[in-house]
């Protein structure tokens, strides 16, 4: 997985580099447009175009039949049944290209999320760093057998610490005094775990941002696949996860100052679909 992540990071960094200085709406717009067109072509060459075309023609024919014989109940019902059946066929025919498209889309969306979903911590703000300990180390900490501490690079000040009653969670509040990419170090006994902490204006950090590193699965996909930029703690590590609270916003930061298209993923979908549709006649693709 780490090799794939490295490849994904390298590829995306390479693609993103020429657009790093552009405003988010422009860089994401270009990426979305290109992806829309590429996905259109991928669809064309991984789908059974002739059968899709046939099904489309059948739908058109049956719609026409319904229009011409609207007084004939038998023809109308039969045509409606035919429309439903042909639509279902299109749906089935779309599954293979969608499955193929998912392979590049998952790491691609993860890369886009890293660039567009999370904003750096504003300079001067205070936030929580949440560290979850494994049960064994939590018990050790509770009994004073191991020390857990947080250190930060210059420009970030560790303010205070809070421990859950059973020490499974330990939180620190940190103040981000200086912009830049900072490093937080969680020290558990003689082991250390790192987490990056971006500070500054939105768009000022030219690197992917992840709010949380974790060594346990939270869904179908491995977190190391969805958050490929920073190494997560190993499965047997005393630290289960490290999370920076201020980076995880309830609503993703707006790419555009427009409510309808502000959210990066909506913007991405609209622009990519728009360009796919624009190029559809040109490449003669049947969807």
């Amino acid at each position: 997985m780490s090799a794939l992540n490295r490849l994904s990071n390298w590829l995306f960094d390479l693609t993103y580099a020429p657009m790093a200085e552009l405003p988010p709406w422009a860089s994401l717009g270009v990426i979305s447009a290109v992806i829309g067109v590429v996905m259109l072509l991928a669809y064309k060459y991984t789908s059974w175009q002739s059968q899709i075309g046939k099904a489309r023609d059948e739908i058109k024919a049956r719609m026409l039949a319904m229009k011409l014989f609207k007084d004939n109940l038998g023809v109308t019902l039969s045509a409606q049944g035919g429309v439903i059946w042909s639509s279902f066929k299109i749906l089935l025919l779309s599954i293979p290209p969608i499955l193929v498209a998912m392979i590049p889309m998952v790491p691609l969306l993860a890369q886009l999320a890293g660039r567009y979903q999370f904003a750096p911590l504003p300079t001067g703000s205070v936030t929580e760093v949440k560290v979850a300990l494994s049960d064994a180390f939590a018990e050790k900490e509770q009994h004073g057998e191991t020390e857990v501490s947080l250190e930060a690079t210059d420009g970030v000040v560790v303010l205070d610490r809070w421990r859950q009653g059973d020490s499974r969670q330990m939180w620190w509040r940190v103040r981000a005094d200086r912009p830049g990419m900072h490093t937080l170090t969680v020290r558990v006994g003689d082991q250390t775990f790192m987490k990056q902490l971006p500070v500054g204006e939105p768009g000022s950090i030219q690197a992917a941002i992840s709010p949380k590193l974790t060594n346990h699965y939270t869904g179908m996909l491995d977190n190391t696949m969805m958050l490929p930029w920073e190494p997560a703690p190993p499965a047997d590590a005393p630290v289960r996860s490290i999370e920076v609270a201020g980076l995880m916003t309830s609503v993703a930061p707006d790419v555009l100052p427009i409510p309808i298209l502000g959210n990066w993923i909506v913007y991405f979908l609209v622009v990519s679909i728009l360009f796919a549709l624009l190029f559809k006649p040109l490449f003669n693709v049947r969807i």
Binding site: R56, I59, K60, M63, L274, L277, L278, K280, P281
Partner: peptide, 9 residues
């Protein structure tokens, strides 16, 4: 519209 042309785009 089943035939989505450039006009619609």
């Amino acid at each position: 519209h089943s035939s989505f042309g450039i006009q619609h785009s």
